[in-house]
Design a binder for these strands. Structure first.
Lengths: 348, 348
DNA sequence: CTGAAAGCGCTTACAG
DNA sequence: CTGAAAGCGCTTACAG
């Protein structure tokens, strides 16, 4: 009905149409101060008619809050950033907040540059997304607003970090295998330089020790985070522990390779060897033959949790330290009880 | 050296330290108007000392430009959004611009909501990211700033859309196979409801017709975008065209399934059947046995191209219509000349 | 309950 | 070349 205007209506336009001052219009619109009900109605109606949307810039300038959060990632392309980002974006959206996204590509110069850009844009807070759940130098001293470190732990004890609970995730995997009656559990995983790999290994070993079980093959097999390594490692492990009846893998990609390697070697999954992956990366876990039982890191929830706590800090909470997001086991067909008979049997 | 202050320095602080008015300080900092060289130096020095960063909110309020672009995706989780987003983010960063990210999750209500939020935040322009390179209703009438549609075409002829060139990509695949001497080329792809699938099929068929070659199997095999379908379709196609010597697949995931299916049926890749995938999705294309020759959509470049054109529009260019981003062929080991002898031969 | 005034931090004509 | 003033669109004491 109304003629389109190139620039949209301002508070002043609303006030004028409602026949009040812009101060009163502001109060009516923000449910602040005492405004006569009739006045409020008129203002609301005027705002409605003009499709009034308050200018967020002006609002931010006066209120000191922009309702924007800066998010700096290291590697958007990696497969961990996206689910976390989704969780963050969703949690922020629920609070009418927006996210300014920057990808530093693992470059410290770029990261500094983005931090100062975001600060200049007056973000209310910052989320620093790591790429490997590991410890990194704190950046907080350069940042005058609250910061949450996610999937990467700040080395400053006063900072607030959110990590995936890799030890706990590995325990879930180990408990599951043991509860199925598996007794000779091996571990094939990624690069030992990753804390994620070490934590998963120690989580598995802890649960095995509690059960009085050894780790099949003696030690975890560390290697690349690749299918290729999975195939190769499967044959190494079978050499060291021919009677292995379960393998916990450090990623779904590795697990896919392990399954292929086992198949090439004539072992059946899960009858002869049960396999648990890690990550619940659907395209691998669900498409594997057989589909993989795996640990889901709940990364989306990790992002949401970080945002919730960051809101707490914005509202004055004093929080610091490390918060670990528990994972969950997703059971598919690569695990089950061992075959009834001993050794590979011709179950059709 | 300097004591940290809770709120950062303003232009006024800089002006005071330099002993000039804030108007002059502003001009000196923005290389605008005539400012005495000595004055400029003093201002710059003062700004440096105070680590002055202009408040982007205030700047946006006066200048009318925020140097922020809104980006609305449908499905951040999908595998097309991220590379495009990376290209966009990178191109924007080069121009000192930032991106406000929103994921509408394919929900029209959410999308509308985000559009008005972004407009209220005074973004300079908007990028609407599609999830399937298909035609969709224009949203431009609700948006008072320039809009670019990416990986999704607006149905309004005055809008500006950026698409991956699927026909062209398929032609690259087809030409490659023909140039290798393959003559019985089949096509296994995803759901026919996707324009991407139809365009790729027609691109392939066009090139085959130009060469006077039929499509092996008579018609493209449409199905799921999954490995499972690839495996299944491989056997269907072999049934219909036992002499097939090449298969162009609609995705790397399908291609991976096709390779598995062919192996199960005793065909060698590439000796007996050459395979070309689509997407250059590294975890599939590079990890496949053998690694896949495939078409890279250049999605990152697509994002960058969209941003560059959007800048043009922001600067007054009149642009509309569809711009197609060419793909490129990535040659790996799943293609090569046919085996010298006829039929499967025991090449060691 | 309502409104005039000041202010957020910057930029941009306009005088001088 | 420099600066006082007005203004971007909103909010917040403060009078009335």
């Amino acid at each position: 009905m109304n003629r389109k205007r190139s620039s949209s209506a301002t508070l002043g336009d609303v006030a004028q149409l409602a026949g009040v001052s812009s101060a009163t219009a502001s109060k009516a619109l923000n449910s602040r101060g005492e405004v006569a009900p009739a006045t409020r109605r008129r203002v609301l109606k005027a705002a409605e008619e003009l499709a009034f949307q308050p200018n967020a810039l002006a609002r931010g300038l006066t209120s000191g809050r922009t309702r924007m959060i800066g998010l700096i990632t290291d590697e958007l392309g990696g497969r961990f950033a996206i689910p976390i980002l989704l969780g963050v974006e969703n949690a922020l959206g629920n609070e009418q907040m927006s996210v300014l996204l920057c990808d530093a590509r693992g470059d410290a110069i770029r990261r500094r540059h983005y931090i100062s850009t975001l600060v200049a844009r007056q973000v209310d807070g910052l989320i620093i997304l790591g790429d490997r759940n590991d410890i990194r130098p704190s950046l907080t001293s350069e940042i005058p607003v609250p910061v949450a470190y996610v999937y990467g732990e700040s080395d400053a004890p006063d900072d607030l970090s959110f990590l995936a609970d890799d030890e706990g995730g590995a325990r879930l995997a180990g408990e599951h295998l043991v509860s199925l009656g598996r007794r000779r559990v091996g571990h094939i995983t990624g690069e030992q330089t990753y804390r994620a790999a070490r934590d998963r290994a120690s989580g598995l070993q802890a649960i095995l020790e509690e059960q009085g079980l050894p780790l099949a093959g003696g030690a975890p097999l560390y290697g690349d985070w690749s299918q290729r390594w999975g195939r190769q490692a499967a044959s190494i492990l079978l050499g060291r522990a021919p009677d292995v009846d379960a393998i916990f893998c450090g990623s779904d990609q590795i697990a896919t390779g392990v399954v292929e390697g086992l198949r090439d070697l004539g072992r059946r999954v899960p009858e002869d060897v049960a396999i648990v992956g890690y990550d619940n990366w659907e395209v691998f876990a669900a498409e594997c033959r057989p589909p993989l039982t795996t640990v889901d890191l709940n990364l989306q929830q990790l992002g949401a949790t970080a945002v919730e706590h960051l809101f707490g800090v914005l509202n004055g909470d004093q929080l610091h330290g490390v918060i670990r997001q528990p994972g969950r086991l997703v059971i598919r067909e690569s695990t089950g009880p061992p075959a009834a008979t001993e050794g590979p049997s011709p179950h059709r």
